[in-house]
Design a protein around this nucleic acid. Structure first.
Lengths: 216, 216
DNA sequence: GTGGTAAACGAACGTTCGTGCTAATTTCCG
DNA sequence: CGGAAATTAGCACGAACGTTCGTTTACCAC
């Protein structure tokens, strides 16, 4: 049972390295040296490099769910939860959950043109995440918080794109990156929101009726 | 002078390979074999692998400008040109200008956490492109086509994010990817547009006043 | 045609890659 | 405590990596 803990430790480090150097840059020798153990000893846990890479993808998915997604589920379902997910996403890159930025953004672009098990694993993880995002949007519609006419997949596409853009800009030391992303996200969501008559008040008309809140 | 032509041919192939395998996956042996020439003969043109990578980035930038950006400049300045640039971007990934999808999206994510000359070169190319995009937006404002209140950098950020998202989805064989991206882009631009009283007509109100045109 | 320069080649360098084996060590259970 | 099982280490391998070297080929001016 000791092996399981060691394996977990290996994978945590593997995820960190892969998020910076890429999954192809993740090398057994480098990883072993980093953990101060022998190549062969480490190797024995996986049997092949590809298996190590696949396990790394899965470990990254776990971390993503634990650090970014699950906490957002505490928010009440519907619009608040959808907003919480978006906020949590930006927070997750800000906190540096992966030292090299969003693991899956990087991995997706790294393997997009290369068929094989790793590409499939990354794609599957992204499918799960996008599915969860779509579900959150659908719930917000069902709760009557979002306009019934909005296209769920379309909105998920746009939000996901903004996440990628946020990660890109943030990694380029653009201090305004997350602020911009948050503004865009909020604007997009507010525009799809069903008018809440209770707080009708005087919303601005025209370009955008945007709140001014800043991300965490 | 023969060497210059050879070098150009090498770089064209190098760009193709790097767009699929990544700049780190671009290997001298592989490239030489692909071109049916000796490693040493090829190597002599660059002096080091890093120099080859840097030259590859520059060659990719050239191709990007030639195939995607310059053609869009034929459109009249202002809103039409901005729209033409966006359309051209989507078309450029659809046409497979780079076999592995947008070279710079991939390279940006590959090197975002790794300081060094290559990261700098990629970042510089992205800066030039984003600068050009911002300029197009600013021109559209100056021409009175876009609302004067819009934030140029904010809009550029959002468009760029949508391009990345489009590339991501398109590379995943999502047939609707470019359609969605186009819809989002057009919606975002229409919302920032100054109302053209001449063609007032009956635009839909509410969520979005979106035209239904499909991308090329 | 001949001489000189530029371009491409082939072989080899030292490293590092992933991957087998086998031996030593540690851990766990009765 | 002792022995079986799981875990780690040591070592060797073939291949590929970037790079250097000396040599040969191709081309162009005179």
């Amino acid at each position: 049972m000791k092996g399981a803990r060691t394996k977990q430790g290996i994978l945590e480090r593997a995820v960190d390295i892969a998020s910076v150097e890429g999954l192809e840059g993740l090398t057994i020798g480098r990883l072993a040296e980093d953990l101060q153990m022998s190549k062969s000893g480490l190797f024995a846990h996986f049997g092949s490099r590809e298996e190590l890479q696949l396990a790394t993808v899965e470990a990254a998915r776990q971390r993503f769910v634990d650090e970014m997604f699950r906490p957002a589920l505490k928010a009440p379902r519907g619009y608040p939860r959808l907003l919480a997910i978006c906020r949590s996403w930006l927070d997750y890159v800000k906190r540096g959950v992966f030292p090299g930025g969003c693991f899956f953004a990087a991995a997706s672009f790294e393997f997009d043109g290369r068929p094989g098990p790793i590409r499939d694993a990354v794609a599957s993880a992204m499918d799960i995440w996008l599915g969860a995002l779509e579900k959150a949007i659908r719930l917000a519609k069902d709760e009557g918080h979002l306009d019934k006419r909005i296209d769920v997949k379309q909105l998920a596409f746009e939000l996901n794109a903004l996440f990628f853009g946020a990660n890109f800009s943030y990694m380029r030391e653009d201090k305004r990156a997350l602020g911009r992303a948050w503004k865009a996200i909020e604007g997009r969501l507010e525009a799809s929101r069903v008018d809440d008559q209770a707080e009708a008040g005087s919303r601005g008309s025209g370009v955008g009726k945007r709140a001014a809140a800043e991300p965490a």
